[in-house]
């Protein structure tokens, strides 16, 4: 891929050896919402083709991290930076980031009266001449009958998730941020949700050829049965307290709750 090198001001070609280049790098990020600091000194990096999972109790700052990466104006970066594909996007606007290749599945997206699901999918497709049509995407996400309905109006939990993933499949982001994709989804739907996420994250590709990255918030960990996350983090009180194998972290949380994580965090300090 091509990335700009600000020091010399020319474009250089960077070869992606084995897919381990840091495509998303968050360095010492602090984020405030309405003047209140929520995230403190968060650092993480996700390499090409990797999916990472984010655990943590309610209110610990997981959604805030996703919203800050996506670039929602209410989430103000007070310190640190976000680098995506070699480019510092800390000051880039929300829509700019979307066009650069970051996409997000929301847990509770708003109803927009009069705007059809079809309009959203079409907006997400942008000007890219895709090989796939809106109707094909809808069929894949079992959303055909929702295309001409107002977006999110009267949708169930599972319908919202499928709609969000359908829009992301149209958008084809390189980095997908997923906020609790399994919440409110029944057992029948979760397999479909898992398949859609896998497609989004190119999980059917061999690791070498995979470029798409994911960062997924999960409470229950159910979604880990469907997607192959390589790294997990525990977020506590706005800080990343722990990094490791996501399945081990999940097992530990299931056994000991987040109490163990608190101890771990204290010891690390």
């Amino acid at each position: 891929m091509l990335i700009p090198t600000p020091s010399v001001g020319i474009w250089v070609s960077v070869t992606n050896f084995g897919g381990y280049m840091d495509m998303l790098e968050i360095k010492g990020l602090s984020v405030a919402v309405e003047g209140k600091e929520i995230l403190k000194d968060v650092s993480l990096h996700i390499a090409d083709g990797e999916t990472h999972a984010l655990f943590g109790p309610n209110g610990s700052g997981k959604t805030t991290l996703l919203m800050a990466i996506m670039g929602f104006p209410k989430y103000k970066v007070t310190r640190g930076k976000i680098v995506f594909g070699g480019r510092d996007i800390t000051r880039a606007s929300l829509d700019e980031r979307a066009r650069l290749g970051i996409g997000m599945s929301f847990q509770r997206p708003p109803v927009v009266r009069g705007v059809k699901t079809r309009d959203m999918v079409s907006a997400a497709m942008g000007n890219i001449a895709g090989s796939v049509t809106i109707d094909e995407l809808a069929e894949k996400a079992d959303m055909t009958e929702f295309l001409d309905r107002e977006i999110n109006y009267g949708f169930s939990g599972g319908e919202i998730k499928r709609s969000e993933l359908m829009q992301l499949l149209a958008q084809k982001p390189e980095l997908t941020l997923l906020d609790e994709p399994e919440s409110g989804v029944d057992l029948v739907n979760i397999a479909l949700i898992g398949r859609l996420i896998n497609e989004l994250l190119e999980k059917d590709y061999p690791m070498r050829g995979r470029r798409c990255m994911g960062l997924v918030i999960t409470h229950t960990g159910h979604i880990l049965n469907y997607i192959n996350a390589s790294t997990g983090y525990v977020m506590l009180d706005g800080e990343v307290s722990c990094k490791g194998d996501p399945h081990e972290i999940l097992a530990s949380i299931r056994k000991n709750g987040y109490a163990q994580c608190v101890t771990c965090l204290t010891e690390n300090k």
Partner: peptide, 26 residues
């Protein structure tokens, strides 16, 4: 919140606003 939702799919602020207004009237 609605404008930002559309912007997160890649529309500019004015495109997002126009889409919402058009939808509202249609």
């Amino acid at each position: 919140e609605e404008v930002e939702y559309l912007m997160s799919r890649g529309l500019t602020r004015s495109e997002a606003t126009a889409t919402i207004v058009r939808g509202f009237l249609n």
